[in-house]
Design a protein around this nucleic acid. Structure first.
Lengths: 362, 362
DNA sequence: TTGTAAGCGTTATCAA
DNA sequence: TTGATAACGCTTACAA
């Protein structure tokens, strides 16, 4: 019973006589033998480990994304597993973690990049490391990517506000060098421009991407001389900061302020106000990222990079009201309060009147 | 310039002439050499990898816990990192994952155990694997543990409801074989008994621990012939399910129903109703677990197991009202609506009237 | 049908 | 002050 035979029994990698195999299995059991995965990885030069880097796992969006990823990876069996890294949007931390993961010889990487390690990532990919960008793209690195239609969805959301008569619309912009945020901003601006409104600087407030900072930013935004009648929040931290600020000030939504957030929450229909949001399929983003990665680990090693765009959807709930006569600026038209007032952009499907945004299978 | 010398330069593990060292460093840079962590782990028989097993990373409680853990582990440097495993409270899945982690030769394990692998875990520990239980204990396995004072906190929360005059109090009990849930249940029962109320079976509803199931359970609970005037939810999924159900039915809290949840949410003060909850220091649980683990990886290899108990705190907000005259059952006393009506159990500090439960450092 | 032995890239011992 | 070499535990080509 040589080590070779044992190996072959464990891996079913060549014929072993039933008798021998039985003996091997018995010995394994008796000795509580467990194969050493490290030695195995060394020999096979593949670890079965995937790196996942996000800014913060306690952000529900990333938690869902990671969950989607992990489910696919676990289902693949074969000792596959996931090393989790939180970068806090810190470029330096991201780079250090990339080094750690490379030393650990991960088989592949899924990353929501902070934005400052483009060259490093390109080099990695050139060397043959499979990399999938999730949630954000990074132009020119040649990686696969899974994102959502940020720009269109934001345009749609803003158009919805416009349809309710809002012309003075503020935006809370997370200070991330992430393509997603920029695209959301573009969509926002385009929608306003298409109804003849050009962005005024004081209605664009940039904020560090955490709840505390978002509170501050929201205060600024609401304190401008002629405050907005509606606000678009570019991610879930911005939304939470805004809602906290509103609560602090005893304002009520949608009576005093209409709000659309980017990102849904599992508790959106359980608490008031029921927020109108652009819902992202976070779980699916993670899942698709894993699938893209596996594709590249298999045959498609040198296929050209693909970008998968999933659909973010406007979920109309109860945080937006039509502007009241006289409350808008000069030039505002009277708009009757009806959520049906709003029209889809040509060709786009009408937004759903949905009660729940969870896209997670059970 | 032998491989030995290179190794010593990288690890500063013995004196190397400045000249040589410079050459080595230059070569490393030129060749873009990176040490192979797998070979290193094989040779040193230690990987720097910690396994973390929770039921579901998309549960905000576990996300915070994992974040606390990861922060400490990252700060330790030295190629330390974390493999994340979601068990879904599934004993079989937990066992499979344990096998994977052992093959990967993790240096230590932090686990919120599903409850069915006690013998397996004990054996692991006996073999010398450092294990820290988080959130839940498992008697007799000899592992370190970090938990909160579930029973006392639940008793306190229930006493608060009693103080508001509630005698017919329901409980949504998550169906987990986790010590935490059992302890919360005990505290709940004890508090009721101490005001002379014995539990009626129809007010104890057990539910699978996810939002969907919790909704179902909440419907059952509210549909009993003589429905409760207050409900205690034993974890955040139970709370969310309950709130959804209330919203569905157009009931309002605290007018129609008083509610206390276990687990706080970062958005608790941003949306209505502002829930009164028992807040757990999730981040700190993760952090302490990591510290316990490192202690065991260092000197305290064979020290007796320690259990660290952190304090969960009742945060009184606005989801509980005093029972109205006549709305209670026969025997209910009239209780004036005042949150100060309630008294701390002897010796316990009065609960804080807090606005925010986040315990996370920035 | 099974065994032998090389080799994966480190680190650590011993020798020089 | 540095180099040669064994060993970590596995997989796999080759031999028997």
């Amino acid at each position: 019973m040589s080590s070779a035979t044992v190996s072959h029994v464990i891996n079913s990698s060549r014929y072993v006589a039933p008798e021998t195999r039985k003996n091997v299995l018995r010995a394994i059991k008796d000795l509580r033998y467990r194969r050493d995965g490290i030695a195995r990885s060394l020999r096979r030069s593949s670890t079965g480990t995937i790196g996942i880097m996000v800014s913060d796992i306690s952000n529900p969006f990333f938690a869902e994304l990671v969950r989607g990823l992990e489910d696919v990876i676990y289902a693949r069996g074969e000792q596959n597993n996931v090393i989790l890294c939180n970068t806090d949007e810190d470029v330096e931390k991201e780079r250090r973690y990339l080094d750690v993961l490379l030393e650990k010889r991960i088989d592949g990487l899924v990353i929501a990049p902070a934005g400052g390690n483009r060259a490093y990532l390109r080099e990695l990919i050139l060397k043959g490391m499979p990399v999938v960008l999730a949630d954000r793209v990074l132009s020119g690195v040649g990686a696969d990517a899974v994102v959502v239609n940020n720009r269109e969805a934001s345009r749609e959301a803003t158009a919805y506000l416009n349809g309710l008569g809002h012309r003075r619309v503020g935006i809370l912009k997370a200070a991330l060098s992430a393509s997603s945020i920029e695209e959301r901003f573009s969509g926002f601006r385009e929608a306003l421009e298409s109804v003849g409104v050009s962005l005024s600087a004081e209605l664009v407030v940039v904020s560090r991407s955490d709840i505390e900072a978002a509170c501050q930013a929201a205060r600024h935004l609401l304190d401008v001389p002629d405050p907005p009648s509606a606000v678009f929040a570019t991610n879930n931290f911005m939304t939470l900061g805004l809602m906290r600020t509103i609560a602090e000030r005893g304002m009520s939504c949608p009576e005093n302020l209409s709000i659309v957030g980017f990102d849904d929450f599992p508790w959106a229909t359980a608490f008031r106000p029921h927020l109108t949001v652009v819902s992202q399929p976070a779980y699916a983003i993670g899942r698709e990222a894993a699938l893209l990665l596996f594709a590249r680990l298999g045959e498609g090693k040198d296929a050209p990079p693909v970008t998968k765009v999933l659909r973010a959807k406007l979920l109309i709930r109860e945080s937006c009201a039509a502007v009241k006569h006289g409350s808008g600026r000069m030039g505002d038209r009277l708009v009757r309060p009806s959520t049906r007032e709003w029209c889809s952009p040509a060709g786009a499907p009408a937004p759903q009147l949905a009660s729940r945004g969870s896209l997670r299978p059970r």
